[in-house]
Nucleic acid binder design. Structure first.
Length: 296
DNA sequence: GTCCAGGCTTTCC
DNA sequence: GGAAAGCCTGGA
């Protein structure tokens, strides 16, 4: 990697780093626990920590952290071991993707926590991003742990995402009334229960293929084809997963298929033309379609 | 076994 | 008032 890591008090600076834009990363649909600050920086909660991510010219400044957490958590969270130049070069052979990549040049696929991804994407079904974010914050506040934050950094209260044990004890009615998850309440509690009891070991999925992991995840209540692909891509590094949501359906029909096509066929088409990089293609296309309103 | 319609909570545009 | 990062159920 060509960038330089500089350590300052409560800060890590990634100097001259390419392929890293906080807006692109957080707003390409993979994450829900982020907040835009007045200076256009992003504050995010993950792995029980709170950090601020700011782009200044060619540098990225991570605040409220240190070198130890950077090495143990954020380096992998931001997928810094991966060479995005190579991915972009390969995908840019497709002229449509070349344009989508230019538009969302700073996208990276985060490595997020499995249980949080499972519950977040169950919550996302037939839902809207502002409401999904709100429900996730409410679940964290009521069933997670309060995170201690240096008051010099922020006076806000932040909570870690709940554990499976924590959420398994929730009542579906409370998730509906307090956390505003609607009909997804039962699914969330039942899924948390299965995982808390060890009937499904999420960690086993790291060693499975996309298809094997998908089959296992789809046994969980509220997890279907689309949600399972999101979990596989955003938590388990299955880069060939190609989640087909309404936006990807629109953009694929608009640019590639030229006709109304069912979701299953769009998924197999994406797998065929993008192969092992389908997940990255999906993220560039999703961000492109959603920001520009393509096909709407 | 596959495919499809209808229902689901509530918020957002 | 329709749509929303879909899933589940029942029937053909």
């Amino acid at each position: 990697m060509k960038y330089t890591i500089i350590e300052e008090k409560d800060k890590i600076i990634l100097k001259d780093i390419k392929n890293f834009n906080p807006k692109h990363i957080f707003e390409c649909g993979q994450a829900f626990r982020w907040y835009v600050e007045e200076d256009k920086s992003y504050t995010t909660i993950a792995y029980g920590k709170v950090i601020n991510v700011k782009k200044e010219n060619n540098d990225i400044i991570l605040s409220n952290t240190n070198l130890q957490d950077f090495n143990n958590i954020w380096y992998h969270y931001f997928d810094l071991e991966r060479d995005y130049d190579e991915i972009k070069k390969e995908l840019s052979k497709d002229p449509i993707l070349a344009e989508a990549i230019e538009f969302g040049e700073g996208i990276r696929i985060l490595n997020q926590e499995p249980f949080e991804m499972v519950i977040s994407f169950i919550t996302s079904a037939n839902n809207q991003i502002p409401r999904i974010k709100k429900s996730i914050e409410l679940m964290s506040k009521h069933y997670g742990e309060k995170i201690k934050i240096d008051e010099n950094f922020s006076g806000l209260e932040c909570y870690s995402f709940p554990t499976s044990e924590g959420l398994s004890k929730a009542r579906p009615e409370d998730l509906k009334e307090v956390c505003k998850v609607g009909f997804r309440g039962e699914r969330i509690v039942e899924t948390a229960n299965v995982i808390a009891k060890g009937e499904l070991d999420l960690n086993s999925i790291y060693n499975l293929t996309r298809d094997e992991g998908k089959e296992l995840l789809m046994t969980l209540p509220g997890v279907g084809p689309k949600v399972s692909d999101c979990i596989l891509l955003f938590a388990f590094n299955k880069d060939d997963a190609f989640p087909v949501d309404v936006w990807v359906k629109r953009v694929m029909e608009h640019f590639y298929l030229k006709e109304d096509t069912n979701v299953k066929l769009i998924g197999s088409h994406g797998a065929r033309i993008f192969g092992r990089l389908a997940g990255f293609a999906q993220q560039y296309l999703f961000y492109y379609a959603r920001e520009l309103g393509i096909g709407k």
